[in-house]
């Protein structure tokens, strides 16, 4: 099977002032379709830099990166934008929705830059379907300030999915959420992954990483460990347990 992501000896050096910062020092990584990978590491481990390169927001200074079989390490700004639009869906820690814009319009936004030029009705239908996937079809005309944090993150996920990307990239998606909402979001990810969507997620929370299938730990710009997740958590069960525990507290 052709890997979605194929990193070979990726390096990233920042030239800032006197000293060169070597943020990523030779990372090689294959991620196959249908995988759910957590990239972990302490701050300064190079995980954000690596994510930016995987997301085509930044270019490596060394090595090659094949996304969906296409060498994207040498593309220019506009070509990168096109790749981001067609092949990658982003989910951010801060949700990054457009304020004073409805959920539906937020989800439609990536299609505005799509080269397929879908008709407006088709755009709306796809945005609606996307919102349905994350269980927010009823909130389509709500604006971000009328939605909870968890709902906002779902809108962001719907936006990431709307162009049917090969890869969903999540950067600390639960960083701004409480534990119950975090589990709910992980439930959404697990559901999408079960449906065949490849997800790469950056996190520094160990228990969040346990909802994925594979954990890659970075340190000092290199891969420290790369292993499958043992005793993987199921979001649905965890949510049920959490609710029972809350119930018990209330009864006592």
């Amino acid at each position: 099977m052709q890997p979605v992501i194929k990193l070979a000896e990726i390096h990233k050096v920042y030239h800032t002032g006197e000293v060169d910062v070597h943020a990523v020092r030779g990372v090689s990584l294959d991620i196959l379709p249908g995988e759910f990978v957590a990239v972990m590491g302490s701050s300064g481990s190079g995980k954000s830099t690596l994510m930016n390169m995987i997301g085509c927001l930044d270019r490596p200074t060394g090595g090659t990166y094949f996304l969906d079989g296409l060498d994207v390490s040498t593309l220019d700004r506009d070509q990168c934008a096109k790749i981001r639009n067609a092949k990658i869906g982003f989910v951010f820690q801060g949700f990054n929705l457009l304020s004073r814009t409805t959920a539906l319009e937020n989800v439609e936004m990536p299609m505005l830059y799509n080269h397929a030029h879908l008709p407006a009705a088709e755009q709306k239908k796809r945005a609606q379907n996307s919102l349905e996937l994350v269980g927010l079809a009823q909130r389509a005309d709500h604006k971000p300030n009328q939605l909870s944090g968890g709902q906002q993150q779902r809108v962001a996920i719907a936006r990431a999915l709307v162009n049917q990307p090969s890869l969903l990239l999540a950067d600390e998606p639960t960083g701004n959420l409480d534990s119950q909402t975090s589990i709910e979001i992980m439930g959404v990810f697990q559901k999408l992954n079960d449906a065949g969507i490849t997800i790469v997620m950056v996190t520094h929370e160990l228990d969040i990483a346990r909802y994925t299938r594979r954990t890659v730990i970075l340190r000092d710009g290199k891969i420290l460990t790369d292993e499958p997740v043992r005793d993987r958590l199921n979001a649905e069960t965890e949510l049920k347990n959490l609710k029972q525990a809350q119930e018990a507290v209330r009864l006592a």
């Binding site: 934008a81 096109k82 639009n85 067609a86 936004m109 990536p110 830059y113």
Partner: peptide, 16 residues
């Protein structure tokens, strides 16, 4: 600036 960043992340080119 942030809105511009979001738009670029989802695929807006400089010219858009």
């Amino acid at each position: 600036t942030r809105e511009i960043g979001i738009r670029m992340a989802v695929g807006a080119r400089g010219r858009d």
